[in-house]
Amino acid sequence: MDRSLLHDRLAQYALLARLNRPIGNFLLLWPTLWALWIAAEGMPDPLVLTVFVLGVLVMRAAGCVINDYADRNVDGHVKRTRARPMATGKVSEREALTLFVVLCLLAFGLVLLMNRLTILLSVVGVVLAATYPFMKRYTHLPQVHLGAAFGWAVPMAFAAQTGTVAQVAWLVFIAAVIWATVYDTQYAMVDRDDDVRIGVKSTAILFGELDRLIIGLLQALMLVTLLVIGRQLDLSWLYFISLLPAAGLFAYQQWLMRTRSREDCFRAFLNNNVFGGIVFVGLVAHFAIYGG
């Protein structure tokens, strides 16, 4: 294979894995970092932190690849996705599946550096990630399934850092599922017209005209869950005060979605990256000053 052809193949694989769109990495990374800092009561073990950051990057890429494989006959009919490599025929089905397997093997190689419980939990994570893209054909709640797939890094992080999965880990997991349902519904609102036309299901379609109200209720539930986590862990004011600007961002997202335009719903979706970062800053500040 000559150099120019190799460069083209690698470029197409990078697009397939969404390396040009890092927002998904951050949305998956923030709950993972929340969990690691809570489990370690501060800075986690360097090896655990490295494995989980790299694991997030690899598994998010794998998730994008299998998502495009699942949607290979659909993406060409959706405005936002019609230029994706599989939709345009630039990457074959065999190439996509091979890349997915390679990425999963890389992730599994990373998790083998962790303890037995983490390795066992990782099997569930792979199943959740691999099945998510197909859920939109059978249920209007694929966003909840995505939340479980993204949030599964939380119990894994606790297992890797402490050797067990504490009760609070499941609260953080619930928060991650609720949050993913919020931002992926906002994301689905961008494609709602196309999805209705081609018969793809989503929470955005299920919620209909009540979309903003239900998202608002989920946002409120997310904030309550974060408050409960703080109370259960007896966190300081530094954590709780971080939830104020976080709540303000949720209000801002509601304002962005007021017209339900594609562009503004997508901006609301992107704004969640800042939300996750603010919560993380609150946790880091607490443990840096007050410790466990």
Rank of each mutant, 00 (worst) to 15 (best):
F108P: 01
G24V: 00
L54T: 06
G151K: 07
D68E: 00
L99C: 09
Q186L: 08
R212P: 11
V56C: 12
W170D: 02
A169M: 03
V102S: 04
G76H: 02
L19P: 07
N25G: 09
L226G: 08
L206C: 00
T203F: 05
A251M: 12
T118A: 15
N115L: 02
A107E: 02
A148P: 07
M114W: 08
L47F: 06
I289W: 15
N67V: 00
D194F: 11
S4M: 12
T88S: 15
L28R: 12
Y132D: 01
V228W: 06
G24S: 01
R212K: 14
T50I: 13
N272C: 05
Y132C: 01
L15C: 08
L105A: 14
P85R: 14
R192H: 05
S236R: 03
I289V: 14
A70T: 09
G147S: 04
L227A: 10
G277K: 08
F269P: 10
R116A: 12
A157Q: 10
L97M: 04
V196F: 08
A288L: 12
M1L: 15
A87W: 09
A39T: 12
S122Y: 09
N273A: 15
V172T: 15
C64H: 00
Q143L: 04
H286I: 00
R260W: 07
Q254H: 13
T164A: 14
F250V: 06
P31G: 05
D2H: 11
Y290F: 12
L10W: 14
R3Q: 14
V123F: 07
W179P: 03
M156H: 02
L15P: 14
